[in-house]
Design a protein around this nucleic acid. Structure first.
Lengths: 333, 333
DNA sequence: TTGAAAGCGGTACCAA
DNA sequence: TTGGTACCGCTTTCAA
């Protein structure tokens, strides 16, 4: 089914059908009706490729994330997609599993699609790729990396603020031995998160003992990391996780070792994903407003009005501590 | 950047560049090298739209799911995508949130993309849409609905088998008051799941009291449903959930009411998503092999060899009971 | 208010 | 081994 088939059936030219399909230009009512009828009868669906090739533009946005399995990313995606749909855009997602090579190929595939904009919410960005993207003409929004430019916007969360709040809180209730559980430490932004922890620890130098471990993202990673930690002999009274998703596994593994949370060990997450509330015990965490991030991303990619231009902006977000039941004072002994 | 730019730079025709890009046809080594060089220098990325328009085919698969948030669907997607990547295909996902209208529009968008194949893993299928899809030429694989046809394959899980196993098991350890928690009962396949429960109950007619409730999918839905259930006055000793994702909320709400799992109430999930193991207590559930489903879906859409044809097939899966710690004998009194 | 026709950036066939 | 070129299905002037 092509425009031509519809045109024949409605006895008009393909130009007219195109006008009807896109609701542009003048079309006599009776003609429009005939065309619409033909479209339904023939079950015509415009070829999206021909369309964006001819039109030179598309109403498709792209989004690349590191780990769709982690609800953190999914929440951002859903907010972005909902804005997009409201404005007649679609969103294509790509998942990298924290692999830099996969990111490169995803980016290139996205570029081949001639998108209207691209959101890159990943931790494995390499400078050369940022460079390439900056030189392109595609409107882009980065999360946590890069700097604003003509076509580049940035959304940043002051991760270290949240980390400080977590540590201050744990310290205030009496913890003096803390451990940090991270993942993919080889990646800059994730290394920065670990550094946030270490920097915060410096304030308590001499007072608080600490350690760090890392594995892969997710419950399995949290579990493995905890196993390593306990095997190392260090006995933290509080474990600070880089995100909620890993914390799920940490709690599980502690329980396996007969340690109760928070009686024996306190555990904190980060992100405040919905699951953190459904975990047992519900996790103390730091809220990162994922919906807002999704909305900001959309606004950074698509101009308010059809004619307007996007221009690089920077958004800074301060995360907040959310105290639930996975933390408490350390055991007495 | 277009083929023409590369061609000019390498001083060859666009036909030659096309050959190099696609590694087809004979090209002298020295020429290929020149072209490759030009491609890198110009950062050329083929326009996917032009490509699939001209080629008439695409190496893109589509997948439509009801709820990406539920890890069940994500697991299938990941398996499908991994096969796809291995064979040089990409996968586009669309999410419907169980909305039939959204499904229709997603399907139409997918049709406009002239995909190589489409996996439809949703519960909100309407007969007319199945009909339309069956009449199309697109290779399609359905989960849980439809019947095989020329271009249609089906993957079905004998849901009722799993349900029987769950109920038999609960009965055997002594439960005589059971409740079923479902969602979106207005949708055929989900109503069928509830019916599986009711049918199984018939075997125990007179012996086992039962009730059913429903809300939306996910922890929140499970929580709400449980609230309704408890408010109704019915006091089940076991709650059977339509899936693990809802069970998470059920356990949470029971705890809120001072009921301990499994001491006071046993809870079962369904699907065996990874989270079911990380929940507390780890959920007794029914395993649905999501990876296998993803792989089957791929094999149903893409023929083994380039020249082969796909043809409709049917796959039947028998789910297995997985007993963990969220179930046990009912309280004595 | 409508139609004709020139692209959009590729693919693939046919000639050279 | 290479180049020329007729499409692919649609958008968008420009004329009628």
């Amino acid at each position: 089914m092509r425009l031509e088939d519809v045109a024949k059936r409605a006895k008009v030219s393909i130009a007219t059908v195109s006008r009807v399909v896109n609701s542009v230009g003048p079309v006599k009512n009776s003609t429009r009706a005939r065309v619409l009828k033909a479209i339904t009868e023939l079950k015509y669906h415009p070829n999206i490729h021909a369309r964006s090739l001819a039109g030179g533009k598309s109403r498709t946005l792209g989004m690349i994330v590191s780990n769709l399995e982690n609800p953190f990313f999914l929440d951002i995606f859903r907010a972005l997609e909902s804005d997009a749909h409201r404005r007649g855009y679609e969103v294509l997602v790509a998942n990298t599993d924290y692999r830099a090579r996969q990111l490169v190929s995803s980016v290139h595939l996205m570029m081949g699609r001639r998108l209207a904009g691209l959101a890159v919410i990943v931790s494995e960005m390499e400078p050369s790729l940022i460079q390439e993207l900056t030189e392109s003409n595609l409107p882009i929004v980065f999360y946590d990396v890069g700097t604003p430019a003509r076509n580049i916007s940035n959304i940043k969360v002051r991760y270290e603020k949240g980390m400080q709040r977590v540590v201050e809180y744990l310290y205030s209730v009496g913890h003096r031995r803390m451990a940090f559980v991270g993942h993919h430490i080889s990646l800059e932004p994730l290394l920065d998160r670990k550094k946030s922890f270490l920097d915060t620890m410096k304030r308590y130098a001499g007072e608080v003992e600490h350690a760090t471990v890392a594995d892969c993202d997710g419950p399995v990673g949290g579990q493995q990391a905890t196993r390593q930690l306990l095997a190392s002999g260090f006995k933290p009274t509080a474990i600070i996780c880089v995100n909620d998703f890993m914390a799920l596994g940490v709690v599980r593994e502690l329980r396996e070792h007969g340690l109760e949370v928070p009686r024996d060990v306190s555990v904190t997450g980060y992100d405040n994903i919905s699951l953190s509330e459904y975990a047992f015990p519900p996790l103390t965490t730091v809220n990162i407003p994922r919906e807002m991030i999704g909305h900001l991303a959309f606004s950074a990619l698509v101009p308010e009005h059809e004619d307007a231009q996007v221009r690089g902006r920077e958004f800074l977000i301060d995360p907040e501590l959310v105290i639930r039941e996975s933390t408490g004072p350390p055991p007495k002994n």
